[in-house]
Design a protein around this nucleic acid. Sequence first.
DNA 1: CGGTGGGACGATAGCGTCCCACCGGTGCTCTATT
Length: 485
Amino acid sequence: MTEQIEQIRAVMKRVFGFDDFRPGQEETLLKTMTGQPTLAVLPTGAGKTLLYQLPGVMLDGLVVIITPLISLMQDQVDRLRNVGQSRVAALNSSLDYQEQRWVLSHLSDLDFLFTSPETLIKPDVLRALHNQTISLFVIDEAHCISQWGPDFRPEYLLLNQALTTLKPQRLLMLTATATPAVQDDIINRLGLNINQVSRVVESVNRPNIFLAVQHLDNQDAKRRRLLELVTKLGTSGIVYLSSREGANQLAAWLNEQTSLRVAAYHAGVAPIDRYRIQQQFLTGTLDLVVATSAFGMGIDKSDIRYVIHFQMPVSLEAYVQEIGRAGRDSRQALAILLYCRGDEQIPLLLGKIDLPSAEILDQIKVGKTTDTILGDAAHVVSFYLTQGMSGREVVNVFAKLEEKRAGQVQRMLSYVQEDGCRRQNLLAYFGQREFLSDKFTCCDLTNPDWVVADLDLPPVQKKVSLPVLDWRSRLESLFAQPGLG
DNA sequence: CGGTGGGACGATAGCGTCCCACCGGTGCTCTATT
């Protein structure tokens, strides 16, 4: 055991230039290397990529990494090339047919292959991989199995079959955010035995993120509060809300009303612009991104100072993921949720799926023409039907899912309406109770007199500001209340 | 639930007002046209 650790340390130093493990890394590496299927729940910034990069360098055979986004695959390929690993490839639809053939016929020359669940389960891909020794199979962002599999990207539900076919020597599931229930769900949906999977679970607590919720009377009051907050907080921040058009409008308005450089980010933005916005935010050319849940995964910016939710997300898991992007540099950061009565309606509605009746579903012959009947859910419903489910079974799956999602919204609401300590509320959901060191920097409930200025956020950079309008200074005095230093 | 866009209507020239219907997130891949 110690010998193996010494070997691991040596490679870590030589190839990646690290001297020490971060919390959870050593345990995860040891378990993975010795062949135990391992689920690692490690907070953002814990160095999850090293957990497969290192075995990839040390082990013979191929490491296959399942990644939810093409952009993440490209990032990982680049990062490995930057540390001198050249036997690396991504396989996805951004490659043309010839390039894909080439990758599949050169698998034995690779140490790392990044791909999506959708590509992995294609018969020719499985066939090509079946002929390889897969030393390690990694599912990155493994919560996607639970979060996206059932109703958004159903191919995640076929990873269990892929595992059965490929029989990898080792298996590693990685995520930053998973409640005990989600951990179980991931393991179950992969067809694994709950007792045979080792778990390495670090706390989701991020002590340097101050937690606050502000209740406001209507949407307009929320907008005014938001304007005040971002004016004070400056760079760098993220504002989350739940509609694309809302993001466009809010971003345009903030650009107009402040000297901040603001962009809207959502799935409707052209890919080239999405890339540009990410880069500008990363390099500090943008101060603020107003985004839907599309923004986040793979955003590796250490000095995000605040995350403001203009609308509540669909679950506490989603909330923790989104605020977790703040303060990776360990300096003080701020997570504020602006709530107004009725805001839970949007997440509740997003959890609903309109389905044809079981009888109609039974009559559907899956094909190109089914999309108009099935609407938004076409892909996932077709998936279930081609898997051999009856109409009734499909209807039941979605009914259960809707129920589960409604419960998640309620749980999110309980955080909003908490009157004890928000951090304890949040940690309890993740099955964690721990000593909370500093009441002052914990949350708005343990420190009711908090103001932004007290949090000692790094100073806002001075920049040329637009002339202040009269009504704005009047607003400032109107809203000089607790919580708005 | 709340915001919005379109149509009807009213009172009378270029609009205001009301009501109703509608919509709201996340991404992979393939395929048939431009």
